[in-house]
Design a protein around this nucleic acid. Structure first.
Lengths: 219, 219
DNA sequence: GACGTGACGACTGTCGACAGTGGCTCCCCC
DNA sequence: GGGGGAGCCACTGTCGACAGTCGTCACGTC
């Protein structure tokens, strides 16, 4: 019997798997904003106990994907156009910090290289959902390359709401996620021009905010 | 019987009250970083069931106050000096956005007024713990006055970790929370000088980071 | 017909119990 | 003396059940 014939077992808890299942169910549009998420119903569907889904739901609540309505009943959350603008301004502030730190980092060149690769991955994709993933992956990578773990964490806490905003106002042909929109960021980093880099990020986010907010209000 | 004779009842759930109790127990130093938080023990102390404290603990975990160790056992979290620096840089980015938005707001003057009052409240206090509260209240107010709800939310998600950093490296005579340190921020806002305001905030945070990181590593 | 009232159903809040899993100790055997 | 199990203990993961609360609907009374 070969050593390779046995792979490590999946040791994730039911709570973690429930969390993942619920998150992707919401993010895939299986549940629409405003929909009521009943604990019993979900527990039945997932085949786990109520307590287990409860913990997963509470997690999603803290992530901002669901919100508490009357008497603790949870609903899928949605964002107003104003909130979308606010959200992207916060994101701009965080990613502005990210580019500043990447530029100041001694590994700036290797970082720029990785970012270029991420941009190319973005232009390869046609499927809208995959494009969105590639876009988010690029921006997450930007934060990670800053080497600031608290920044990464803060960004990820925003991720859920960002996905809501994107999904809610999903005019999928969004030029926001185009390759051309991201190249300037990488170029500014390569040139070590902090002011230009921050300005480019700000503009990128302002454009995205405008786009998704408009799509949200027309929905 | 007067209308006033009956006040509204406290409708908070046991989970919420457990959460509050645990949070203040950790933040007051009742539990030290690294201490193990057993569900059974806590449930016994608080007089509630395990499931209830469990949910509260999970919430604190997402806040970053506790972290999962071996086999899901939770411990009180602590921050490395490097993480303290990172944390305060993120904070600087967020509060930099806050001052920019406050200055751009049409209610800038009334905002500056409220901030002045908050600064004065800070100088009135002698008790260290109360000073810390006043300091955090000032910075939270700054975010709130920006009118950006997402910013407030992002800041509050950092609050737990900030309190850990402050508590962990608690050289209480910290000049960081002095009145003089905060006045320049308000002044820059009053004068509408965006660049100066952002610079002041950055310096404020850099100083605080240096201070608390140093205190953390010597502990 | 409008209003108060009672029953019913659908939720969530909370609890106690069982099961599985590592870590630890102690003992046996080589 | 050292190594390896067996057994015990302290934990967390997961579950099913009970209780309390609110919305709804039908019913009876003025």
């Amino acid at each position: 019997m070969s050593v390779e014939s046995l792979s490590a077992l999946d040791r994730s808890t039911l709570r973690e798997r429930s969390l993942e299942a619920l998150r992707s169910a919401i993010l895939s549009g299986r549940y629409r904003p405003g929909d009521h998420l009943g604990e019993v119903e979900l527990a039945g569907s997932l085949g786990v106990s109520r307590g287990t889904v409860r913990e997963a739901l509470r997690h999603l609540q803290q992530e901002g994907l669901v919100t508490a309505g009357n008497r603790g009943m949870l609903r899928v959350n949605s964002l107003s156009p104003a909130e979308v603008h606010e959200l992207f301004r916060v994101r701009a502030a965080l990613e502005g910090l990210a580019v500043r730190e990447v530029i100041a980092s001694p590994r700036r060149e290797s970082a720029a290289e990785k970012l270029r690769a991420a941009v190319e991955r973005l232009s390869d994709e046609d499927e809208p959902a995959v494009r969105m993933e590639a876009d988010l992956a690029f921006h997450l990578l930007l934060c990670q390359l800053s080497g600031n773990s608290m920044l990464v964490e803060a960004w990820q806490r925003l991720e859920g709401r960002m996905r809501v905003a994107i999904l809610n106002g999903a005019s999928w042909q969004a030029p926001m996620m185009a390759r051309d929109r991201h190249v300037p960021i990488v170029e500014a980093i390569e040139q070590g021009d902090v002011d230009a880099a921050v300005r480019v990020v700000d503009e990128h986010m302002a454009g995205a905010a405008e786009h998704f907010a408009r799509a949200t209000e027309s929905a």
